[in-house]
Design a protein around this nucleic acid. Structure first.
Lengths: 241, 241, 241, 241
DNA sequence: CATGAATGAGAATTCATTCAT
DNA sequence: CATGAATGAATTCTCATTCAT
């Protein structure tokens, strides 16, 4: 009767930037140095990589510890050894993934740009990041289904996110000073607005695609949406004369 | 996920507008006539209502059939009798919930309004709907985690969504004709933009709240966000002179 | 996930004499007289017919009361009304089916034939009956899996079967007297031998077919097997000179 | 099938050669070395042994996974660990059981015997095997109720059975050459004939016993039936002068 | 008589986690 | 460190049977 093998159907509908399930270059994972038999760091990273895919594809409850272990170079025991539990592993994945985006935002150096150009750069970066890092988008979505319970427990999480707000505050302040931007905009609200526009088209692309027969994340639409979103944000912040 | 953690911890962190788990007006459900023992419609509706809460709170994999049955007037068996399987029930919930929003959109009669006012009305409706119907937002999110697998199977789903697009097309056309709106906007793209702004602040409120110390769905922010989003959309569509 | 609907695969591998599951001339079942609304006898017969198929195809434990009721003109309630329980229904099916073969054996009138020809006629009848009445063969098989528990309870069963033995005894006696048959053969043993040869090729045709790539019940082999079995029996009973 | 009738009533009505349910020599199973806790081979064998009894006694649908697990040294979980599903276990049982008889047939070395003696030896072996291995007979019967669905899936099954046919072909050829046997006999047909005679008296002994008041598998009849069947086969193959 | 709705007691299967080697 | 084996507590689903209308 073989009911089992639920034939988990992950997300990643053919877009290459999504982590493929079967063999995402597992080969280059053991590169560090000449094939040491026991390399804790490598083992951990390996587990974390596989877990990122599984949690991202299946959600916290949907993910299967066995499925993760199977696609790992090591065994279930190690998974528990390093991360304690399924939830611990999930949390580790979350921290890794959130860490990445904020780190990148730092490298933008928008403070050196003209306010309008800086704003454009920030929006484009945010757009591109979401467009590419679908695991990130999915994990954030999943974590919201969990009521942010796990992110809440993470010490490193809270601090890490303020930097974007500072960046935006700086841009807004300089734009207002230069007479380019309105002076009634709250930085956090603006961040929410930008995030919304960049996140939704990826996060909800499946139902959107089914409902309207058009996958909003399709590469062909990328340039148009990117321009549209930049445009929408700039029209929003710009001072009318 | 400790073994015995039967006590599922749903989402709804204290915000009253989220559907309360225990008794959300169940009282008015058995109104038809005094407590008939055999009332299939009522039984189905009852199951569907409870299931909506459970799936919305826990996700498809996270939801427990037992938990649903327990909070029902009937037994688990009836759930299978009417809906065939956990997934069948989930799908029925999805159809119900999607049906509602589109039905309401019809009642707006924006075609009778001036384009700018019509657009404002549509955005405000969309905002209010998402702000209030958090089960809807959660279920859509969950369904995207599932890759829209279940809405895809629903016949009624696809047809039902075109109406919004027609509404927007009409608004845009009239606005362009009146010299109020730009003429280079695609209706589906605009719908995506509006949805993004209304959906994200609810759907991702938990991680956003944790990250920036401000719950974007908090009632106190509602008016401000509503105005901001209307403003952003109108600035986006309006023709510059 | 729709695990249910086990897609019961009945037996009847394309041989027309096996009762087809979907519509085996159900039409002619309500013939008796001008479509009376309530005809208990007809209802019972209808239930019995459907049940025969289901039990024969699925076995006692494998059969589903729901499946039977569904393919009936009436409802489950009637099934319990007339037959009391699943087991009661099974037993009724068994009695009906056993009744048929013995009745037919009577009509052979082998006592009027020459012993050799009479023996031939008896074997051929037995062969043909098993070859055609596969439901009978299956039900007997099933009942043996049950340890003949239900047949044991049937009053009408025991008496009905002696007649064949009498027929064989008569044939043997006459054959011995005529110097054609050996005189050391037990009638019951001979019946067992004949039954074995006629029953096995039908009852075990599936595993036999799989094991040896040749379905022993295939129409193309029928004539050959019929001749072979008659031959084997006659060689066995015949007196050697 | 009364609700609580948990106490499955197996077949084996008092005949000692049928596998006893409680302890069929389980003692010699854990021989390897003193009660190792971790012995996968033993665990599997143990499960398989118990399952053979349960499936043989109750059929595929009638068997209870819980009942099997209970009489095992392990838990239900291990059953799924090793065999995947109830059906997987059933299939494993089938393969084991079919493997045994063919293996034994090999050991007969009938090719070294005179054709008549070889034929006698083969028939006697077949008789004895069916007479003793009632689990085998029952499982084959059950599998025919299933339409041979599961042996069909077994790779090892098909090849394994040809050997008997080769043995028979060799006997027939040598017998014909020696002027002892007829030359118009098909080996597969002959195998079918022999099987029929040996199988039926065991497989259908219950209904036969009820119908005619004589259990054909009773030890007292064994010698007589054995001789009768050998006789019948030899008369069938022998060349008449 | 007829019928869809309802039900309790199982039955198969799954899952995160721990243990012996 | 590493690994296959083992486990108990759930979890989804099924089934014969009865009840209200």
């Amino acid at each position: 009767m073989k009911k089992g093998s639920k034939a988990a159907e992950p997300d990643t509908n053919g877009i290459p930037s999504d982590a493929p399930r079967k063999d995402n270059g597992r080969s280059d994972v053991r590169r560090t140095d000449a094939r040491r038999k026991y390399d804790p760091e490598q083992t951990k990273r390996n587990i974390l990589d596989v877990a990122t895919q599984e949690f991202s594809a299946m959600g916290l409850t949907g993910a299967r510890v066995d499925a993760i272990a199977e696609r790992t170079n090591t065994t279930k025991r190690m998974l528990y050894y390093y991360f304690g539990s399924k939830e611990g592993l999930y949390q580790a994945v979350l921290e890794k993934v959130y860490g990445d985006i904020r780190a990148l935002e730092q490298d933008l150096h928008v403070s050196e740009l003209d306010p309008v150009e800086g704003m454009r750069a920030l929006v484009e970066f945010t757009f591109d990041y979401h467009d590419r890092q679908r695991d990130f988008v999915r994990l954030v979505t999943i974590e919201n289904i969990n009521g942010a319970k796990y992110v809440e427990q993470s010490k490193s999480f809270k601090g890490r996110n303020v930097t974007v707000i500072h960046t935006i505050e700086d841009l807004l302040a300089r734009g207002v000073a230069a007479g380019q931007f309105r002076n009634d905009i709250d930085a956090i609200d603006l961040h929410l607005l930008i995030s919304s526009l960049c996140f939704h088209r990826i996060g909800n692309r499946h139902t959107f695609g089914t409902a309207f027969g058009r996958d909003p994340s399709h590469p062909r639409l990328r340039a148009r949406h990117r321009a549209m979103i930049v445009d929408a944000v700039l029209r929003f912040v710009r001072k009318e004369d």
